[in-house]
Amino acid sequence: MKSDAHLHKAERITRQLAKIGPRFHEARVEAAMLAATHWTNRSLHILGILPEAHDMIHTDYLTGADHLRLKLVAPALLAAVEGIEELRAPYVRGAAPDPAAAGETAIRLLALVEAEARKVRAPELPFVTYSPHAT
């Protein structure tokens, strides 16, 4: 998806997140994950790690090379989005104790993701991926 469309969608979902009360920690975590994923995709496109025709769903699904590139170029962004993702199993798909704190953590981490994503700029030279089939 186009980088600007990711920006629009991230901002739209963040506005929806603001309406979700602390009793609904699952929705807070999921909204934070969705908005953070849009910010991350926008960053990946700007950095040239992924083309706009190829969005990632979760950072777990990035190739090892692309994950490492993002980690080196935008470490705080990656750590924050992965922090949100790690809340999903125990608190969205699980019944771990103190879930309201998880919702608050997700909101805090999303703010970090957004702040870091807004700093991302295109590199001077593009990233390229080696493929044995490329000519």
Binding site: I13, Q16, I20, G21, R23, E26, E30, L34, V92
Partner: peptide, 23 residues
């Protein structure tokens, strides 16, 4: 979470309304 679903605007908040429905 069905309570939250009732609080959201199905069109204006579609992304989270739909995602909550799925959850």
């Amino acid at each position: 979470l069905s309570e939250l679903r009732e609080q959201l605007d199905p069109r204006g908040d579609f992304e989270i309304w739909m995602w909550t429905s799925m959850t």
